[in-house]
Design a protein around this nucleic acid. Structure first.
Length: 879
RNA sequence: GGUCGCAUAGCUCAGUUGGUUAGAGCGCCUGCUUCACACGCAGGAGGUCCCAGGUUCGAUCCCUGGUGCGACCACCA
């Protein structure tokens, strides 16, 4: 029989120093290449994670740690199952969040007309953001974005390593890097060739601060305080007017129509006539519309270019005039009245009234218009009273905002690029159903969004820090761009920067010259690139062989609030490019909530910083907390759970120290108790494996933890340790080691540090797996050589007898370790007979000297009672 | 307003494919300096499984309705 040498517990620290161990294991894992993806292994052995690239625009909070750890646990399980795990990490650095952060950090604004700083720009963080921001050129602005995101990426990387993410750092990328830009442009080119993209000049949702168009998916409603203003309009050719209610009086100058419900008797007589607006005295058509709600406001409303999406619809259907008074920066632009089919009225007076509005923001224009509406001279009716009827009535209503913006969106007419999606809803829904969602109900979020989609995807942004469109426009003889015939760069020429590169058939001298060409200066919506993360991993057209190896991915981890954006767009791209699904599974993490059950987020100022918690509870402790929550379940942040995780780490350390501290001859596992334990262990492994296969890592952890703590350390270890320690316990020694080795591996996905630490004390050499994270996942092969116990209930009988004896000690208020001089154990005869195989272990662990087994017919099977207990004298206290 | 989720011990959460006394951890109580671990061990108290109906021999679990909390979407005159 082989002999195992005990480790010397004295060579181990008294307490587990997690911070030291974490540093040490990072180095070891790097050196061993434990997490490296092997490009040589085939697809069927590979497990591909489509990792979310975190937005690099600030700091990571516990919500990030929570969800990324959950993904890591799944990846670590797959790796131990022998899969070749492709687990990349990227940084989503392009886009508005970064631009905004750079603007604030350095107090700058990008101005394409400003010349670049010679020798490259270097700025210190701005200490004072008062006064006008410094204007910097587009290349300088991009450089500042890159500088700042590089810093952020380093900080993120440090934290992710600390948390123990088993990503392959060789696969690190950023969404602004040249390869991602190349892939984004290839994607555009492919969509262009397939006829899925188009550009059009139309009213589009517009953020006046960022001065860019935004997509439907990035819009959110926010309850906003406003006020109903009752405003009297005149009617052409009659004395009687009517009163509209509006929350946006400042748009009065942009009023191009008036509408009410077709069946509303109050306004029926007005349809077909023209209303006269107060102040500006513009005549506008009054038309019926089913969309007008007689119950709302006064039942009749003004249509402006543009107050909201409904206005856009009416403007199109009724072919109303266009008077776009709000400019791209949110300020009122000059407008000439009298040139839009207006015949009657006083254009000069209107122009004079409007002249005071030019340059004002929405807010101050509102003040100005309301002021004008208080003046009876501005009345459009003939009753001589002020157009504003009564005082504004405050209300709170939902207003559309860009999700990252601060002021309400406006509809601004501009030329934008779109991906045509509205005609592909059926195909999009079908793809969504091909994917398995965890939890399954999350697919309904996707369905709901897709079914209710009401606009194509606006992919152009009038910004700077993002991949460029590979597009130029020919200029006609007058120097005007021919938007109907864009020049899209050929695949082979990509990537291009249209502001630097020259389209085929032109020379650089023709740039921005009549008869020449001009660059498209818009950049992509950040989701246009982010929706390609599976292709960024696979290389797609840049590396077809790798693409076949890595696409579709196995899992897409993400949170549920971005199903409408990230998941949706990624599914759309895979559909449009290759008619495929981008991944087999979507695993949706929940949120961390405050104790008040509000989402933890930076804006709410309730974020707990991860580093302090990692220091206090160890990385494994924090991971334990994250892995305790099921997918899709929002969880209240509870520090007690982290403390439990830390205790589990300590317990593993101590149990490992004890088990591996026992040496001696190892025998086959043949004692009844040992066989009964191994049978339980094998059953646990089967259950835990099943849970992991279903992405139910929290269930797997709970089962493992319960077995480890209750069945292993409190029960089996106590029952077997005397035999293992006092020689002749080769079977117990082997079973204890098998138990420890198995439990360490079951815990390894969640607790990578402590498990590898204990593994390294003995099992690394014994098994030839230097890191537990490359050790084989436990399975039937580990237990094949151990015979089943003679009695299937041996383990439970031993536990029940042990509990009965312990209880007598507890009731007598003596130490559990106190020796028992005499005891009588009662059970029915059959139970006592079945106990025989494990009774010696029970006696040894409870320190029974003399006992009597008393068969009693009236006790149920498996039930023990003890009586006549006397104890040995307490051992002398030393010191 | 539409869709979805949740509601189980003081707290954080499991669980029951419908079946005798519903679980864990934390917290609480009673003990135990125990030779792996006091970040421990033993013992214990604590629950109308949100409410009302229905199906069933039987419901915490299934169905219907309601209440509360949360999310996503819509509502912007």
């Amino acid at each position: 029989m082989p002999t195992v040498r005990a480790i010397d517990p004295n060579t181990l620290p008294k307490h587990f120093d997690a911070v030291e161990a974490e540093q040490r294991w990072h180095a070891t894992w790097d050196q061993l290449g434990v997490y490296a993806w092997n490009a040589q292994r085939p697809r069927e052995e590979t497990f591909v994670v489509d990792t979310p690239p975190p937005t690099v625009s600030g700091s990571l909070h516990m919500g990030h740690v929570f969800s990324y750890t959950q993904t890591d646990v799944i990846a670590r399980y797959q790796r131990m199952q022998g899969r070749n795990v492709y687990y990349p990490i990227g940084w989503d650095d392009n886009g508005l969040p970064t631009e905004r952060r750079v603007q604030n950090h350095f107090h700058v604004r990008c101005d394409p007309k400003t010349p670049s700083v010679a020798g490259g720009i270097h700025l210190e963080p701005a200490s004072d953001t008062k006064g006008p921001p410094r204007l910097v050129s587009r290349p300088d602005f991009i450089e500042l974005c890159l500088q700042l995101t590089r810093q952020d990426e380093e900080a993120f990387k440090t934290l992710w390593r600390r948390v123990g993410l088993s990503v392959d750092w060789a696969l690190e990328y950023s969404t602004i890097d040249v390869r991602c830009r190349h892939l984004a442009q290839l994607s555009f080119r492919d969509l262009w060739e397939k006829g899925h993209v188009y550009s059009v000049e139309a009213p589009t949702m517009w953020d006046v601060d960022f001065q860019t168009a935004v997509a439907q998916a990035e819009v959110e409603d926010r309850p906003t305080r406003g006020a109903f203003h009752d405003v009297a309009f005149g009617v052409e050719g009659q004395a009687e007017g009517f009163v509209i209610a509006t929350t946006r009086p400042e748009l009065l100058a942009a009023c191009v129509g008036v509408t009410a419900h077709p069946d509303d008797p109050r306004f029926k007589p007005l349809f077909g006539k023209r209303a006269i607006t107060p102040v500006f005295r513009v005549p506008v058509p009054i038309f019926p519309s089913e969309l007008a709600d007689p119950e709302k406001g006064t039942g009749i409303l003004m249509v402006c270019t543009f107050g909201d999406a409904t206005d856009v619809g009416w403007w199109r259907e009724q072919k109303l005039a266009l008077r776009q008074i709000i400019g791209r920066n949110g300020r009122f632009v000059p407008v000439e009245f009298g040139t839009d089919g207006w015949e009657s009225g006083d254009a000069a007076a209107a122009n004079a009234a409007y002249a005071q509005m030019v340059g004002k923001t929405v807010h101050s224009a509102r003040v100005a218009v309301v002021e004008a509406l208080r003046d009876p001279a501005n009345s459009a009716t003939r009753d001589g009273t002020a157009p504003l009827r009564g005082e504004p009535k405050p209300l709170e209503h939902a207003v559309k905002y860009y999700e990252k913006g601060d002021r309400p969106l406006e509809f601004v007419t501009s030329r934008q690029w779109f991906v045509r999606l509205l005609d592909k809803k059926e195909a999009l829904l079908a793809k969504g159903d091909e994917i398995r969602w965890h939890p399954d109900f999350m697919r309904l979020r996707y369905r709901n969004w897709t079914e209710n989609l009401n606009a194509d995807w606006c992919i152009s942004r009038q910004r700077y820090f993002g991949p460029a469109f590979p597009v130029w426009y020919p200029l006609d003889a007058a120097g005007s761009p021919d938007y109907a015939h864009p020049i899209v760069a050929e695949r082979a020429t990509l990537p291009v920067d249209p502001t630097v590169d020259v389209p085929a058939g032109f020379t650089d001298a023709q740039r921005d010259q009549p008869g020449g060409f001009t660059a498209e200066t818009d950049v992509y919506d950040t989701w246009f690139t982010s929706s390609l993360t599976p292709q960024i991993s696979s290389g797609w057209e840049l590396d077809p062989a790798r693409h076949r190896q890595l696409f579709p991915a196995d899992i897409r981890p993400q949170s549920h609030e971005i199903i409408r954006t990230w998941a949706f767009y990624t599914i759309a791209k895979a559909l449009l490019h290759e008619n495929m699904v981008p991944w087999q599974h979507v695993v949706v993490s929940g949120w961390i909530l405050d104790p008040d059950r509000k989402k933890m987020s930076k804006s709410k100022g309730n974020v707990v910083t991860p580093v302090a918690l990692l220091d206090q509870y160890t990385s494994d402790g924090v991971r334990y907390w994250a892995a305790s929550a099921r997918l899709g379940t929002d969880t209240a942040f509870d520090e007690k759970v982290l403390a439990v995780g830390k205790r589990l780490v300590t317990k593993l350390f101590n149990a490992g120290k004890f088990v591996l501290g026992q040496g001696g001859e190892v025998a086959g596992i043949d004692a009844e108790l040992d066989r009964a334990f191994v049978q339980r262990l094998a059953r646990l492994v089967a259950q835990v494996t099943k849970s992991y296969e279903a992405f139910e890592y929290a269930h797997a952890l709970a089962e493992t933890e319960s077995f480890f703590w209750h069945d292993f350390t409190d029960t089996y270890l106590e029952l077997a340790k005397v035999r293992a320690r006092d020689g002749g316990g080769g079977s117990a020694l082997a079973a204890l080691r098998l138990g420890l080795s198995t439990l360490l591996r079951l815990f390894a996905p969640v607790l990578p540090y402590i498990t590898d630490e204990v593994w390294s004390w003995a099992f690394a050499d014994e098994t030839g797996s230097p890191s537990i994270h490359r050790a084989p996942w436990p399975g039937p092969a580990d237990f094949r050589e151990v015979a089943a116990p003679a009695d299937a209930e041996s383990f439970d009988l031993a536990v029940a007898a042990l509990a009965a004896i312990n209880k007598s000690k507890s009731e007598a208020k003596v130490s559990p370790s106190r020796g028992v001089a005499t005891i009588t154990v009662k059970a029915n005869a059959a139970t006592l007979a079945r106990l025989a195989g494990v009774w010696d272990d029970v006696m040894a662990s409870t320190r029974i000297v003399e006992h009597r087994l008393d068969p009693t017919a009236d006790l149920a099977d498996g039930v023990f009672e003890v009586s006549d207990v006397t104890f040995l004298a307490a051992p002398p206290k030393d010191g």
